[in-house]
Design a protein around this nucleic acid. Structure first.
Lengths: 210, 210
DNA sequence: TATATTTTGATAGTAACTGTCAATTTAAAT
DNA sequence: ATTTAAATTGACAGTTACTATCAAAATATA
């Protein structure tokens, strides 16, 4: 693995403590959610488990949902996408970026992600919030894609395209909810490969499409 | 217009009053939202404007969002979808259903819808809630579609199809937010027509796709 | 060590809900 | 018309996520 070229932002005690608190907060929250459910767990309990005051909680996370939703994967995805060679079609590039993103994860990370996704899918308010987050991701993706294609980021087709990718991602969430044995990364890849074909959704011998 | 074949459910004073209260609630709420904003309007104010108690409010609407989101259009969309001839591809059928739904509206209805959509787009919590609603509608549609195609409602491709429509609808929301002059119905239609083509997203002479 | 800057916790408040229960209103039965 | 049953309502008392404020404590800087 190449050394971090970004280099040495010296991190003081303050910053270190903050990161630690943040991490602990998420971990304890996840544990409590697992043990007693999302709704049943109050922010007060989470704060107590982390030995901070409830008011401090909101200095780390703006909402209860953010505890589950916040991660670094969105920027990673964007970076990987930008890194793809321009010969690839937009979907191919996105698919490759998704693959690269998953490939870069450790086992623990992907296990943690899986649990969080499980929550997002099953708790309505989390699903709503994650839809909103996807909405923003969509805008980013559309922007990059527009850039790549030499189109305006306001281009309606570019946006619709980005939207269909997101829709596919949502589908993956639902599918994985119903099939807990399914591998998330692989399901994402399948969905994208399906999008790549232009979605020829034919019946079972009822209505041949070609 | 053919007479209502559903016939005569005799509607007593009780039922009549309830409908009236419900309608007034929505109308007054919309007015207040228009005048002072969604967030700035409390349920207490809405209740007062309708001369009911705040506790009664929640017997009519489960949430504040429902005041804006609740309408009859979802079932209409589903019904129209079921009515489409089986020769159409799924997307064609959905598009036709959406068109039929919009076409069946009076001018007042579509004006009212427009205002509500404006709210949904600009108020984050309403947007989140409307995405959730859309999501459920699409699950229903996916189910119908699976039936129609002789596939399982769990079929991954059917789900991906539904997801891509949802993504497209998200895009429409965003687009209409940025282009207030755009006609919602028409934008929906355009997005669907684009989906219909299989989304050939080519660059500007940079990367020919075919 | 002294001083400036962040971070924190305590406190008080708001608003969207939830639950309960008695009072009122409507419907149905006599 | 009167009684009885059932549905609807309002008052009240929570709970919880979240906001705002301010002084105390912790950390960085000189």
């Amino acid at each position: 693995m190449p050394p971090d070229t970004q280099g040495k932002e010296k991190i003081g005690l303050r910053e270190r403590k903050k990161r630690k608190t943040r991490l602990t907060l998420q971990q304890q929250a996840l544990r409590l959610f697992r043990e007693q459910g999302y709704r049943e767990t109050t922010i007060e309990q989470i704060a107590e488990a982390c030995e901070i005051s409830p008011s401090t909680f909101f200095r780390y996370f703006p909402t209860k949902e953010a505890l589950v939703l916040d991660d670094e994967y969105d920027p990673i995805l964007v970076r990987e996408f930008q890194r793809q060679p321009p010969e690839l079609t937009p979907i191919q590039a996105f698919r490759a970026a998704a693959r690269a993103g998953f490939a870069g994860m450790t086992l623990e990370e992907s296990a943690a992600l899986k649990e969080r996704i499980g929550l997002m899918i099953s708790v309505p308010e989390l699903r709503a919030a994650s839809l909103m987050q996807m909405n923003e991701t969509l805008l980013m993706i559309a922007e990059i894609m527009a850039e790549r294609l030499g189109r305006s980021k306001d281009d309606f087709q570019v946006m619709t395209f980005a939207g269909s990718i997101l829709g596919a991602m949502m589908t993956v969430q639902i599918y994985c909810k119903n099939h807990p044995e399914a591998d998330f990364a692989q399901t994402v890849d399948e969905a994208l490969s399906y999008l790549e074909t232009g979605q020829p959704l034919a019946g079972q011998g009822t209505t041949p499409q070609k």
